[in-house]
């Protein structure tokens, strides 16, 4: 698995709060047995209701860094949400804060989600609107977001950051390593042995 140390690309501002995963990918697109093809349906209902939605704005075509508001990705645990963003072309999200399951899902797909203070976030979104072509760099190692001449600090939990920069965000191989420990642990849990030892 490749290390995710920096993500570089153009930004797309969507500075709204409490965007839930039903809005990111409506439930009707969960009727699928693979994640293929989800990209084109990202924010579909919002886009239909708002002709000026950034996801349809040609200025942001090809952008890979999403700038969102507070509590981004709340609601359903559907991994379809980050999967659809990823397939749309989003490789990092900068927001004021994230819902936890969404954050975990993104991390396990290698999509860094970093938090930035509101005031700075607004500067970033504004700067992207003024100059959509500029490069935005999300540096996971140094916890910095760079755009134009500006360098702003961002936050991310140590564990997630570690997982991304070491390329261990898909934790399956690590978890599999512990198989002996897992079985030993299981044997010590009362309900795993019909409560015979309690």
């Amino acid at each position: 698995m490749a290390n995710v140390e920096t993500v570089e690309g153009r930004g797309i501002p969507l500075l709204l709060d409490d965007i839930d995963t039903d809005r990111i990918i409506p439930a009707r697109y969960l009727r699928c047995v693979t994640f293929d093809g989800l990209g084109e349906h990202a924010f579909e209902d919002d886009r239909n209701q708002n002709p000026n939605h950034p996801f349809d704005d040609p200025r942001y075509k090809g952008a890979s860094i999403l700038v969102a508001g507070r509590n981004f990705g709340c609601g359903s645990s559907r991994e379809h949400a980050p999967q659809s963003l990823l397939r749309w072309g989003i490789h990092a999200v900068v927001a004021e804060s994230f819902a936890e399951i969404f954050f975990g899902n993104c991390t396990s797909l290698g999509i860094p989600c970093v938090r930035v203070e509101r005031a700075v976030l607004e500067t970033l979104a504004e700067s992207i609107k003024q100059n959509p072509k500029q490069t935005v760099v999300v540096n996971v190692r140094d916890l910095q977001v760079r755009f134009g001449e500006k360098k702003i600090p961002c936050e991310m939990s140590d564990n997630a950051r570690q997982a991304l920069v070491t390329g261990e965000f898909d934790s399956l191989s690590r978890l599999l390593e512990g198989v002996d420990d897992i079985q030993e642990k299981a044997a010590a849990i009362p309900y795993m042995s019909h409560f015979s030892d309690v």
Binding site: P82, I101, G104, N105, S108, A163, D170, L172, G178, V179
Partner: peptide, 20 residues
């Protein structure tokens, strides 16, 4: 805990998860 689909695969394969 609610989990995503990749985590569903991890639990199927290892009965464990990496959590904070």
């Amino acid at each position: 805990l609610g989990i995503g689909t990749s985590q569903v695969a991890y639990v199927l394969a290892t009965q464990t998860l990496a959590l904070t």
